[in-house]
Amino acid sequence: MKAAAPQSVRWLWTALSILLIVGLAAYVNFVLTGSYDPLVAVFNIPGSAFFILVTATEVTFAYRARGLFEPAEPMHTTWTLILLSACCRLSGAAFTQALSAPISWNFLVIVKLLQPERPQVLHSIGVILTGPAAMALLAAGLMRVLVLKRRLGILGGLTLVDKSFIAAILVFTVRQLMDIGGVLLGNRAELTVTQVVLWFSDPLLALLLIQAVSIRRSVLNMGQGLVARCWGMMALGVAFTSAGDVVLWAETHGFIPVVISPLGWFIWFFAVTAFASAPCYQVQAAREAHEGSYAVRMTHG
């Protein structure tokens, strides 16, 4: 029997649905009129607010999930890593979505401190925090979960399809490393620190995807328990992040028509909602552990 989703998760996905309805209305307007203005407004105002608020929710619930475990327990360290990853994403979202953007509700705009050269620097800091920094911490946390699941015998074996998918990810990563090698052998004078740090994003994302495949298989084997769904949501977050990355790559290389490219931007809202839902399930599992009792007295015979 499938347990009901926690109320916090229902709120998160309801908020996402409302944002998607508003966003799709703006997208239809873009298709009909060709004007980007309403679409940009949706992403700049409710979209940015959604990113920051949902990631703040993730930080709050990850902190609570971490508090459920004693410091000596393996999952305490795991949730500490996930909490730090969420903090990186929150601060990164604040830098990229709010502080570096010339929008009316930006605090730096209000106090007139957003000088012309600052947005790029703030944006770079935000991108590094949401990218390699958050990914490295999350990968470390998920690796600990996989090790623990394996130790307890609930990981389950990968299927041929899973292994083929992982092989494809590895081939893609090697291909990207070769591209990086090509850049390093060419003109290195134009390289920036941000670019070099961001090179770690793709290998880290590949590692996260491999972990997500293993976790997905484990969730399929385990069933629909609250703990299984917690890690399933984490894997879903990684999958959406990868999908968003692929869309960005395809958009940059001109593989996606201009008229449908804005639809790909919405993937990031799904990713952030999935990441925030994961600790909600963990907290709900602990809550249900403490709730209720088996009140019916045993009758003999």
């Binding site: 084997n221 385990m222 629909q224 328990g225 703990v227 299984a228 249900e288």
Partner: peptide
């Protein structure tokens, strides 16, 4: 079943 699912 509640926490880990039928499969587990």
């Amino acid at each position: 079943r509640r926490f880990f699912g039928q499969g587990t």
